Amino acid sequence: MAKKKKKSTSPNTIAVNKQARRLYDITEDLEAGISLKGSEVKSLRAGQVSFKDGYVRFTADGEAYLVGVHIAPYDKTGVYDQHDPERPRRLLMHKQEIENLQAKTEQKGLSVIPMRLYFARGKVKVQIGLGRGKNVHSKKQDIKDRDIARDTARQLADYK
């Protein structure tokens, strides 16, 4: 009898937005599909993506687009088949999810930002987070709390 392939439970991470948790206080996150071209998928498999100023923009006709995420052109594709690295990419979500996120961003002044890109079941997914931007004081407080936690962990390790 042939062995069955073991399905991996953890998705294959392509890239993580390290600035997201530092600049925003994330309250909730969810998964969305993303509409890509073939050369973009190949470029993602090579890990050529940058989140820099990425965010989610909502349109009047009830669609969500990922804007500001740079996916580098794939170098083995011909000149005429290249994609625009900065083009807005449509997010694939249920209509109700889009409406809920849009209402929260308009009423409460929250932002929707991409947190990470990953492969799940052969498809590219993006984890988006809903959060409020941090000010300078709260960033400094987070750094201070992290330093205190690190020092106490060191002292406990020395004590044992």
Rank of each mutant, 00 (worst) to 15 (best):
Q82L: 00
K95M: 06
Y80Q: 06
G131C: 04
V69F: 04
V126F: 01
H94D: 14
F58P: 08
P88D: 06
L30Y: 02
S39R: 01
G109C: 05
M115V: 02
I143H: 09
P88W: 11
K125L: 09
E97R: 02
P85T: 00
A60C: 06
K76H: 12
A46I: 03
D142N: 15
Q127D: 12
L117C: 08
P114E: 13
E97Q: 11
E99Q: 07
A32W: 06
H70M: 13
I98Q: 02
A64P: 01
Q96T: 10
R121D: 11
G54L: 10
S111V: 06
D81H: 09
V136N: 12
I143G: 10
Q48A: 15
L117H: 01
G68V: 04
L92Q: 05
L44K: 14
E40A: 00
K104F: 00
Q141F: 14
D84K: 01
G38K: 06
L110K: 13
P73R: 09
T59N: 04
Y118E: 05
Y118T: 02
N135A: 12
S43M: 09
Q96P: 00
I71Q: 00
D145W: 08
V124R: 08
I71C: 03
G78D: 12
D145I: 08
Q48P: 09
K104L: 02
I34K: 01
A149G: 04
R57P: 03
R132W: 10
N135T: 05
A46F: 06
G47S: 04
K134N: 07
R57L: 08
E106T: 12
D147F: 13
V69T: 04
D61L: 12
M115W: 07
D81G: 00
R132Q: 07
K52R: 11
V56R: 09
G129Q: 01
Y55L: 12
A46M: 14
K123F: 15
Y74C: 10
N100L: 14
G54N: 04
K123N: 09
V136P: 04
K144M: 10
L110P: 11
K108W: 10
Q82N: 05
Q102M: 13
E63H: 15
E99F: 14
T105S: 13
K42D: 02
R87S: 05
G47N: 02
N135D: 14
D84E: 09
Y65W: 15
R121T: 10
A103S: 14
